[in-house]
Nucleic acid binder design. Structure first.
Lengths: 349, 349
DNA sequence: CTGAAAGCGCTAACAG
DNA sequence: CTGTTAGCGCTTTCAG
């Protein structure tokens, strides 16, 4: 049997309620507190969280719901959350919904009952559904915004603007944006940051394969630079361009979005918009903790319910000045490598 | 107030203990059970896990400890675990230890108290420390083996053997293995599968950067094919080889290990040993559940405490037949691209 | 097969 | 400031 309050009380020569008070910060005389602390320490006492939870109604645990842990973007967010949670000594349930809105809703309902608060990362559900099932007093959105719910998100439109500004500064006049899914909040946010003269291509699937498929779409347009929905799409695009014999950045500049670790490993290394991912997780956890309050402190009112984190451009090798040769499209579709020597030993798609 | 057993008891016209029995599978008359179930359903009754936990001593939760969620390998394992957990209706705490053995030990101790069982994925701790802190009756190791603890791991040595067999079959006679950290269980396992005539290079850091750094080490040896510790290292190696103007697979074959999703996106796509990652997570969770037993069923004795999952070779474009030109090393180190056209626009490392 | 009653370990009133 | 007394919601003896 593990040591309980009774053991400590006996050892310290006080009552169990005094032990409880001494340990949870109630009003106890300094001397008594000292005695109790010592006894607890000596016996290696660890309060039973379950028992405490039964009476306080709080579990000391939080939930994090992500669409897909395999997606490096969400893995980063999760990492930020768990790091901060460890410091705050609270457990984090993580649920992966496999990009399924129904599973997401179910997870919110189910996790909501077993935790003190929920972090919803890039939920795929509609605003209405979210508002219906999520408790505004104990949920924080990450990389998503819904009126009425606390949220932490990056300045997505600003990031898109920076990327386009970079391409424009390099001399590109015909720039395309490879849009993500139409119902994606993140994609709409990026769109909101784009000048009107940017050609919109897509929607494409927000994956490597989506980027591969988009390659031909891009080459069919008279553009010299592309901002992809995200890094995965950009890298797929890079692959397809290489296969089609289009040199990057000589004949086509490509920029991504998110700056997942992959971006630095691509070929060529990818210029991209850096989004604070783990930072967002940390900030969101902190916001949630403030909102629901600690066992001692009461729930704080939140001044700014919508936290915005800055984005920044990371310039690598996939973007470059507009070459004097002009847009590739004059040459029309080509099925094998052109005169450029950059195709390399691509042997499969 | 949420509905409790009392509400259900009243609605069904029975006592609370009957409700409890009906719901947890005690001996109740079929008719009564029916009535109770109906009432519970109608009232939307959900048992309070905390209260149940206080008496049963079980929380219904499990813990998963991984070295780094950002590592796609572990993200995959986590994905498998959470998927199966969702089906089994048990919560999963995930803790990321940031590759820190001390944090790992602490997490085992701390999570051990709040959960019914622990899944330790590729723990970085020594056998002795693990045995000291982990409870053999409620922990399962994933991708690690320690005598006395249940474990689920891939046939790592077999995978290494397959990879070398592939390279040999392609005609390569001088093959190197880029070893991971010396204290890494996984690296030692790979080593165990290698023929004696494979040149061992390293240890290298098991990262992209480690692979980049290893590139020059490899080129300094008269080898024509390399098996890297893992895919990340292989991809870093690919980068460095491209920078040094060495065509892959024409002048050097490169194979990775793990088959993370990245492997298919590399340049060229990477031949690698496929390791069942999410599957391992699923199997491990199931094993753990069997070991600790469900609220009804008692803990089962485990027949085979060391589960082995098969590995398989995925052949992509980074390996090819030995070219007649012989090993590159005759040319010695070269700092810029040679006559090969495969360097491409690499402008940063 | 069913009901009454006794707690699981802890905290929160309430007196003293 | 401290001790006593109730329970939190549930399961589980123990009688009936």
């Amino acid at each position: 049997m593990r040591t309980t309050v009774h053991d400590v009380a006996e050892a310290a020569g006080v009552s169990v309620s005094t032990v409880s008070r001494a340990l949870t910060g109630g009003s106890v005389s300094p001397a008594t507190r000292e005695t109790v602390m010592a006894a607890a320490e000596r016996l290696g006492y660890r309060p039973n969280r379950t028992a405490r939870g039964l009476i306080t109604g709080r579990t000391g645990n939080l939930g994090l719901i992500v669409p897909d842990l395999r997606n490096p973007f969400f893995a980063d967010v999760a990492k930020g959350v768990t790091a901060r949670a460890r410091a705050a000594d609270c457990g984090v349930f993580i649920t992966d919904t496999d990009e399924d809105p129904a599973a997401e809703l179910e997870a919110i309902a189910s996790l909501g009952r077993t935790t003190d608060g929920l972090l919803l990362c890039s939920p795929r559900t509609t605003d209405a559904e979210l508002l219906e099932v999520a408790d505004p007093s104990s949920t924080v959105l990450v990389h998503r915004r819904v009126p009425g719910l606390l949220s932490v998100a990056a300045d997505i439109a600003g990031g898109a603007r920076q990327a386009i500004g970079h391409l424009t500064a390099l001399g590109h006049r015909r720039v395309a944006f490879l849009a993500g899914p139409d119902d994606s909040w993140a994609s709409r946010q990026r769109l909101a940051g784009l000048p009107a003269d940017v050609l919109r291509i897509g929607a494409v699937a927000p994956t490597f394969d989506g980027g591969v498929a988009a390659g031909d779409l891009v080459l069919a347009e008279p553009v010299t630079a592309v901002l992809a929905y995200n890094d995965l799409v950009a890298i797929g695009l890079l692959h397809r361009l290489a296969t089609r014999g289009v040199a990057v950045p000589e004949r086509m500049s490509v920029a991504g979005y998110d700056d997942i670790s992959l971006a630095a490993m691509s070929h060529p290394p990818l210029t991209t918009v850096a989004v604070p991912k783990d930072r967002a997780g940390e900030v969101a956890l902190e916001l949630l903790l403030r909102r629901i309050g600690a066992p001692g402190r009461p729930p704080a009112e939140i001044r700014d319910p919508e936290v915005t984190l800055p984005t920044g451009l990371v310039v690598r090798a996939s973007t470059g000045p507009l070459s004097s040769a002009g847009p590739h499209s004059a040459a029309g579709p080509q099925s094998s490598a052109g005169p450029q020597s950059s195709a390399g030993p691509h042997s499969s798609s």
